[in-house]
């Protein structure tokens, strides 16, 4: 097969540019493309607009000063409700924010995927989401009801970063886990989608039931990177759960003087292979139990 979109973490991140708007898939501390995020931290990429249902992806990029603007409904680590590095950036006043309801955020991705300038919704009316985002406008129904809606603008992404369970060289993907959140909408909203995967195949050959785990078309995928344990320390069902000990260590680093520099030196700077070794290896990560809610 001639089509081969496989590449390396380094090459995938090298294709991104300063100032880009990046959508990061997953949800809080679940299904985050952390190997790609770590590779961004190893690069010089900066002035990013990050669009995310935020977890440690947002926290780490904030800690490293790479985020100019954050488009988000929340940032949390679930069992650790408050993300320390997001909080520090937010409370310092340096972070430009577009804070949205979770559903408005979905609507923005959908609008971008449908090549619409906006989608109407009642959600946001009466709240400070409108007051704090003066760029958001309302629209009046052209029908007899005359209802007023928020015109949720398209959240167009220069690139989407996703981590999937399986992929092939052509860009076909399989997303497992109990809930795969809104990854398909990020892919549709983005000019280019970079996918990292647990397992890489030459070409997927599926039975009909298995094919239902394919949530978006391969023409949306520009690059495929093989990155086992690439969602660590977030949870990635059914392959592994979140690494709560690691997340606690990461959060504790925010309390120490030069804590981020130490975390970065300990885990990130030496590369992804060293990261996995430092975290006990893919075998240990593969044994991390899925979270119980």
């Amino acid at each position: 097969m001639a089509l081969d979109k496989t590449t390396t973490l380094q090459a995938a991140v090298a294709s991104l540019q300063d100032g880009m708007t990046l959508g990061i898939g997953g949800w809080g501390p679940r299904r985050k493309p952390m190997a790609l995020v770590r590779e961004i931290l190893r690069s010089s990429l900066r002035d990013l607009t990050v669009v995310s249902y935020g977890g440690p992806d947002v926290g780490m990029l904030c800690a490293a000063g790479r985020v100019r603007k954050l488009v988000f409904p929340f940032v949390t680590l679930d069992a650790i409700p408050l993300e320390p590095y997001y909080r520090r950036a937010r409370e310092s006043g340096v972070l430009e924010v577009m804070e949205l309801d979770e559903g408005m955020f979905e609507w923005g991705l959908r609008a971008a995927g449908m090549r619409m300038s906006f989608l109407p919704t009642r959600v946001g009316l009466g709240s400070d989401v409108l007051a704090r985002n003066p760029g958001l406008r309302t629209v009046t129904s052209p029908y007899d009801d005359g209802d007023v809606y928020v015109a949720m603008p398209a959240l167009k992404l220069d690139a989407a970063l996703l981590h999937v369970n399986e992929a092939d060289q052509l860009g076909n993907t399989l997303l497992d886990g109990h809930d795969v959140y809104f990854d398909h909408l990020y892919a549709r909203a983005a000019t280019r989608t970079i996918v990292s995967c647990e397992r890489l195949h030459a070409q997927l050959a599926l039975d009909p039931a298995r094919a239902q785990a394919n949530r978006f078309e391969r023409y949306l995928v520009s690059a495929v990177v093989h990155a086992p344990a690439g969602a660590h320390p977030t949870s990635f069902g059914p392959d592994y759960g979140w690494d709560m000990a690691h997340l606690k260590h990461y959060c504790a680093s925010a309390l120490a003087a030069e804590g981020w520099a130490a975390y970065r030196a300990d885990f990130i700077d030496a590369g992804e292979a060293a990261y996995l070794d430092k975290c006990g290896g893919a075998v240990r990560i593969g044994r991390l139990p899925l979270p119980v809610f």
């Binding site: 929340f74 006043g93 946001g124």
Partner: peptide, 26 residues
């Protein structure tokens, strides 16, 4: 559920508005 204090430079950043605007309206 978003931020306590001045919005531009909050005393305490909490979680974000999450789904509250939609939940409360719907």
């Amino acid at each position: 559920l978003s931020a306590v204090g001045d919005y531009a430079k909050p005393k305490s950043a909490v979680l974000g508005v999450r789904g509250l605007p939609g939940n409360s309206l719907c």
